[in-house]
Nucleic acid binder design. Structure first.
Lengths: 350, 350
DNA sequence: CAACCAACTGGGAGCGCTCCCAGTTTCGTC
DNA sequence: GACGAAACTGGGAGCGCTCCCAGTTGGTTG
């Protein structure tokens, strides 16, 4: 006879804790303990429960669970950038890969949140700070984005990807862009170039500023004037336009450090169009060591940043914080390294 | 005096429905009705509730809500591919962009699920089919992936991206790869080439098969033998190796249709290495119209597929299904079109 | 053999919400 | 002014789980 309300007979099909408990001949509590790997369960009970779980194909209802534990087992990846060309950016792709790698084995879900075109972020902030996720990884391109700071202030564990310009209180992971810029300048100097220009990234992004400052440092080390600078956004067209401007303003330049491979691609196009040979007439460098660096001819000398490690480190930092670990570094800088290829390798000019 | 159990005074900080109800001087039910935009609430009550929500900064607890409604307001994007180089693929990036666009305004979250390196998908399947998400978009590269079919069989609304080879029952969105291949062959024929080869995609992916079949059709239309075929995976190296093989086996070829821009990039590299001029000696075509097509010199003639539309359409199809719409097309094919650039434009050989 | 302790087990309460159903009010109509 | 219908409102039950606390067992020990 079927009792009404018999939880083991569930018309919805999905078995509940209660159903497992009945099948295993134990109580709800014991099943719960087994599932959550808590101590205090006899081997016999544990086995019976596991068997019942297997038989019924039981999967815990995450909603019910998180209602009482106030944990969601999911973390947000917030891409705080309207105009979402972030995808397609090999840098972001690598970071995402790293995040996934860092997350595997932690049974936490990744919820992707992209800022809507028309949204000011308030919507997003409200959602994130009201218990829908356990923590957030914020990748924002604009340096002075208030979001990471506000999320952190609201008590949500946050790790920023890329040094936030405004809020100082947010832990972040970044590549050592300063050293990268420095390495670039030094390399160009060492290969004998003396009239070195740079296509810098946007001035309102830490990544743009830091690489530029590193390059300036390298220039002044060599007693060269660091004044052939043009800023650009990170796009092929931007790189080409910046290159054009540099050539017009500094006709005698013999080297260019582009603060991103994609800028170098644009620069290369402009140089070819004007019949300037790379590296014979002008040495060209990129930054990132993305696919573009080897896709293009000549292959680009560039500064490699460990993109995948970037994502993995962000994730590690956040998970550690969620686990309540102490003495965590507020910020982590990942090493950058020089990768020499053909675009700076040819004979010297003149 | 503070009454114990007074829900308006919540030591946890997050206000509940109950708190809002008290602040507004109405019942829980009324607040719920306002939030869910259900009819049967007087203007006065509605206003009071909205004011209270505003004041308290109330945000509904999604866990509690989905516990009773059995809806989660989130859909999964399943990338059913171990060896996750999917990111970084401009195609995937565009699709993701489209998915996001299609999702905006639906207040549904995107949960990103990547198949783990070591997982056989069972884990994933279990998770997805037990009520954690309302539906799934499955992007799988391998054609005979059983996952989409199994998810659909388990009752989860699923839309596949790219025609699944095995399961016929799953609705899918795909580009019209057959026509794309056909257009490519025709274009090469029309520009006077007669010894046309192809670097095809993997033979176990619908995308590889369909483009190849389209090309074959175009070849036989022109009474040309469609037998200069080498398969390759979608990578620069694969393209280069395939090109090498083609040149060895068919020294007289005067045109190559690469089934992806990235293959064409590899092919171009191999051709350059051997001193073969493009397009003078050999015409080269790609497929996708990705960034690579214009990054490379000479710019690639290619077949454009509407990647962003691809993602948007997948999302639309899934949301429509979730909304219970009827008479939905089981599969949707998006148009591909020829984009002519320099790589097929030069003078004829001989 | 009673007393005790450790190891294990089970049931109740409650997380915040929706949904159902039973009121209560308001209004138009005869 | 009475009545019925329509419009609105409120409380109870319960979603599936965790956590707390009060048992219950079994094995030692004096």
């Amino acid at each position: 006879m079927i009792e009404p309300g018999d939880a083991a007979i569930d018309d919805r099909g999905t078995p509940t804790l209660e159903a497992v408990a009945r099948a295993a001949g134990v109580s709800r509590s014991t099943v719960s303990r087994v599932i959550n790997e808590l101590p205090g369960v006899s081997g016999r009970a544990r086995e019976a429960v596991n068997r019942a779980i297997e038989t019924l194909g039981y999967v815990p209802n995450e909603a019910a669970r998180s209602l009482v534990t106030r944990r969601t087992n999911s973390i947000a990846l917030v891409v705080s950038e309207p105009g979402d060309r972030v995808f397609g950016d090999p840098f972001f792709a690598g970071v995402l890969r790293g995040i996934h790698a860092g997350l595997s084995g932690s049974k936490r879900q990744l919820v992707l949140m992209l800022m809507a075109e028309d949204d000011d972020g308030e919507q997003l902030e409200k959602y994130l700070t009201s218990g829908h996720v356990d923590g957030a990884l914020v990748v924002s391109m604009h340096g002075s984005d208030p979001l990471p700071g506000r999320l952190a202030a609201a008590g949500l564990p946050v790790v920023a990807g890329g040094r936030p310009l405004g809020s100082t209180a947010v832990p972040y992971v970044d590549s050592d862009n300063f050293t990268g810029g420095l390495l670039a300048a030094r390399h160009l100097v060492e290969t004998g170039r003396t009239r070195i220009a740079t296509i810098a990234g946007p001035g309102d992004m830490a990544v743009g500023i830091d690489r530029l400052v590193g390059w300036r440092r390298g220039m002044s080390e060599a007693r060269l004037a660091p004044d052939a600078v043009v800023h650009s956004d990170f796009s092929v067209e931007g790189g080409a336009a910046a290159m054009a401007e540099l050539l017009d303003r500094h006709p005698g330049l013999d080297a260019v450090f582009a603060a991103a491979d994609i800028l170098a691609v644009g620069a290369l196009r402009e140089l070819s169009a004007r019949g300037v040979r790379v590296p014979d007439d002008v040495a060209l460098m990129g930054f990132d060591d993305s696919v573009f660096a080897t896709t293009v001819t000549p292959a680009l000398t560039t500064v490699r940043q460990p993109v995948e490690e970037f994502g993995r480190t962000m994730t590690w930092r956040l998970l550690a914080q969620l686990a309540g670990e102490e003495h965590l570094p507020p910020s982590i800088l990942l090493p950058t390294e020089l990768v020499v290829r053909e675009s700076t390798g040819g004979p010297r000019r003149r």
